[in-house]
């Protein structure tokens, strides 16, 4: 297989083959990489009341001299602001807390579900699989909206709780952290379940039988065989959930309180509310730095084993 790739590679280094790499390469460089460099650049600019609302720090036309000048004029005021104002630090911490908490919840709910799916008789597995995947295809916004329906003060949840006599007065669910956790767990569940399911499904069941034959109790076999073997799926699921949740905007905005904002909301407010582009760029740069470690781990996994070893 390896030799075959090499042979084909040599065979194929024509202009056509170059084009195959070049087209997506250029697209991503222009619309993914370049924009980030602009964000970094603008995060060092001064805020200005103008259109666009910042003063440029670097004019590429000015050449090397211009670059030196620009470097000396770099403004760290936005970063200083982030460090000095408690609001920003609080929302970074809040994001990490919510992301860590909900990823843990997702793991606790997702693992048994994935395990159950993998142990479903083969005949039923495709159906269960499609059923778990189907909600993922419906709009994210709609799924959050569905929860607003349920969680509002006179919504279905409170009606049920009142009818059963569990509560006397309807508690407020919306604008609480509980609602945010529910919304996140609900929306990200497939991202946790599917990677774990993929590893559990291809697990060799004779290993469990062997453990049982050797007198290992079920729970110990689970702990010593199943859990370690499912690790790649668990790691993928955790990263696939944790990273985007840290920057989540829609869920905390619609379900959470405005008391402590998550960092995605802060960025959004700085940008759309305060029209402060340099500060929101700085918020984005810091957020990215925060996520660099998990993103790099994730990419290492991707590049090493792109097909999930299937």
């Amino acid at each position: 297989m390896h030799g075959a790739i090499k042979k084909r590679g040599e065979h194929n280094r024509s202009w056509g083959a170059r084009l195959i790499v070049l087209v997506p390469y250029l697209w991503l460089a222009t619309f993914f990489l370049l924009p980030f460099l602009i964000v970094v650049k603008i995060s060092f600019s001064h805020t200005a009341i103008a259109q666009p609302p910042y003063t440029p720090v670097f004019d590429p036309a000015a050449g090397w001299e211009g670059l030196k000048q620009a470097l000396s004029a770099l403004s760290f005021e936005n970063y200083a602001l982030l460090a000095s104002d408690w609001l920003y630090l609080a929302s970074y911490l809040k994001s990490l807390e919510v992301a860590a908490g909900s990823t843990l919840l997702l793991l606790l709910i997702g693992f048994p579900l994935a395990y159950g799916m993998a142990r479903t008789p083969r005949r039923w597995q495709p159906i269960v699989f499609v059923l778990v995947v189907l909600p993922f295809w419906t709009s994210f916004l709609i799924r959050i909206y569905a929860w607003i329906n349920i969680l509002q003060r006179d919504g279905l949840l409170n009606q049920v709780l009142l009818a059963l006599g569990i509560v006397d007065a309807p508690p407020a669910w919306l604008s609480t952290d509980t609602a945010v956790y529910i919304g996140i767990v609900y929306s990200y569940l497939p991202f946790m379940v599917l990677p774990i399911y993929a590893t559990l499904e291809k697990m060799d069941e004779t290993l469990i039988e062997a453990a049982a034959d050797l007198g290992c109790p079920n729970w110990r076999a689970f702990w010593l065989v199943t859990v370690p073997l499912s690790r790649p799926g668990v790691v993928a699921g955790v990263l696939l959930c944790f990273i985007p949740i840290v920057g989540e905007f829609v869920i905390p905005d619609l379900l959470g309180s405005s008391q402590t904002m998550m960092i995605g909301q802060t960025l959004w407010t700085e940008f759309f509310g305060n029209k402060d582009w340099p500060v929101s760029s700085a918020v984005a740069v810091v957020l990215l730095c925060l996520l660099v470690v998990p993103i790099v781990i994730y990419q290492q996994m991707e590049t090493r084993d792109p097909a999930g070893g299937r």
Partner: peptide, 20 residues
């Protein structure tokens, strides 16, 4: 560049593209 957008928070991608 291929894999990063998979996990990149959307607020960052959106902001970056707008600035471009």
């Amino acid at each position: 560049m291929v894999y990063a957008p998979l996990v990149m928070p959307e607020v960052i991608t959106g902001l970056a593209l707008l600035l471009l």
